[in-house]
Computed example of a mutant assay.
Amino acid sequence: MKKNLYNSGEEVSIKVSGESVVISKCQYVKNMKRYSYIVEEYPNTFFFEDELIKET
């Protein structure tokens, strides 16, 4: 299992919209072998690592 790219409380951007969001929860999805993230702004939606980008 690889390490997650983002941690809770970290500010990132959604690649498609460029919107700045804050990670609230991170979870490893075993059958997909990657992490999913829930952000504070959209608590009913999850994102995968490739849909997010670190803020600079």
Rank of each mutant, 00 (worst) to 15 (best):
G9P: 02
F46M: 12
Y42V: 09
S36Q: 15
K30M: 09
L5F: 05
G9A: 03
G9C: 04
S13V: 09
I38A: 03
V21Q: 01
L52K: 01
K54L: 12
V16T: 14
V16I: 10
K30F: 07
Y37P: 00
P43K: 07
K30L: 11
L5R: 11
V21T: 02
E55P: 02
V16S: 11
V29H: 05
E55M: 10
V39Q: 00
V21L: 03
K15R: 15
V21W: 00
Q27H: 13
S36K: 11
M1S: 08
F47D: 00
L5D: 09
P43S: 13
L52M: 02
E11Y: 07
S24N: 14
C26I: 13
K54G: 07
N44V: 13
Y37T: 01
E40M: 08
E19A: 15
S20R: 15
F48E: 04
V12K: 02
V21I: 08
S20M: 11
E49W: 04
E51L: 03
T45K: 14
E19V: 15
E40D: 12
D50L: 05
V29P: 03
M1A: 13
S36D: 06
P43C: 11
E49D: 09
E49R: 03
M32V: 10
S17G: 13
Y6A: 04
K25M: 12
V16D: 08
E49L: 02
E55L: 10
E10A: 05
V21A: 01
G9D: 03
K54S: 13
V29T: 09
N4T: 08
E11K: 14
V21H: 00
E51S: 08
I38E: 03
S17T: 15
Y37N: 00
F46I: 08
D50I: 10
C26N: 07
Y37Q: 01
I38H: 03
V22G: 02
M1K: 14
E40I: 09
K3S: 05
N44S: 15
S20N: 07
I23W: 00
E51F: 05
D50P: 01
M32L: 08
K30A: 08
E40T: 15
P43E: 08
K54P: 15
I53F: 03
V29M: 06
K3T: 11
E41A: 07
S36F: 04
N4F: 05
Y28E: 10
E41V: 11
